[in-house]
């Protein structure tokens, strides 16, 4: 049990007649990248939201670091060490890149109810923020307005903000989306090293990245996990090929 950072047990979630999660059980172990793949509409986003705390499952439980968190909200789960990146960049667009990173550092440290000191002159927060920006390669863009960043740079900043939290695990929803080949490759290399720091549950459409990175892959189809295994096992799985990879290979 202690070896598992995140565990979902038989999660079910329906929206009217549509069952978006069916008995979803998966886990995330220390040091691994566990990729979650599946065709559009398979229920990946619904699952992510149940893990992050935006949605309450109809039945089943979510465990974080050995503690049941099914009833806790997103804020409580973030404080426990869940670092999340969003499918659609969720950043403070009026802020500079550095301010977004400082916001993350502030959240990671807590103690937000200070009304007088200048937050952008707090050496501890700045160091944490600059460190995270450097790791994703945004140092030179620190003083730009976030709204002026390219799509790919916003994806990088999402990752940087998650890093400032110093999380115990990452929950990344399509971090490669729209990155282009070079950006995708760079981020793949980065995530490869990141798993040593904290394991990653990675939802991703970029199959090259998934097969290059993932220690384990789970395939979600119609809300159900039809297979979990290593890249080779998934490639060889007939059901997966039929449900999912077939289309990809043909394309």
């Amino acid at each position: 049990m202690a070896d598992v950072v995140l565990k979902t047990d038989a999660l079910n979630k329906s929206f009217g007649a549509l069952q978006a999660s069916r008995d979803v059980s998966l886990d995330l172990r220390p040091g691994e990248i566990h990729a979650l793949i599946g065709p559009n509409g398979a229920g990946k986003s619904t699952l992510i939201k149940q893990i992050a705390g935006n949605l309450t499952p109809d039945s089943g439980t979510v465990e974080l670091l050995g503690r049941e968190v099914t009833a806790l909200d997103t804020v409580a789960r973030a404080r426990m060490g869940l670092g999340r990146t969003f499918q659609i960049s969720a950043l403070a667009m009026e802020y500079t890149v550095l301010q977004n990173a400082v916001l993350g550092a502030l959240g990671g440290r807590g103690r937000v109810f200070h009304f007088f000191r200048n937050v952008m002159k707090d050496p501890e927060l700045l160091e944490r923020a600059r460190d995270a920006l450097e790791r994703v390669g945004l140092t030179d863009d620190a003083n730009r307005r976030t709204a002026d960043l390219s799509h790919g740079q916003r994806r990088q900043l999402e990752v940087a903000v998650a890093l400032t939290l110093k999380p115990r695990l990452f929950l990344m929803d399509e971090p490669m989306a729209g990155l282009g080949t070079a950006g995708s490759k760079a981020l793949t290399g980065f995530l490869d090293g990141l798993r040593q720091e904290a394991p990653i549950l990675l939802v991703e459409h970029d199959m090259d990245a998934v097969f290059a990175l993932a220690d384990r892959i789970s395939v979600l189809v119609y809300g159900q996990i039809i297979a979990t295994g290593t890249a080779d096992e998934i490639r060889a799985n007939a059901e997966v090929r039929r449900a999912y990879l077939g289309e990809e290979d043909a394309a």
């Binding site: 997103t74 969720a90 937000v112 109810f113 007088f116 937050v119 903000v161």
Partner: peptide
């Protein structure tokens, strides 16, 4: 001072993007 404080940074961020503020644990 309030606008430049840790509180002000978090408050104005909540106006811009509520999901982000929650995701950093505030």
């Amino acid at each position: 001072r309030l606008a430049r404080s840790p509180f002000g940074l978090a408050l104005a961020a909540a106006r811009q993007n509520e999901d982000r503020v929650q995701a950093v644990g505030l």
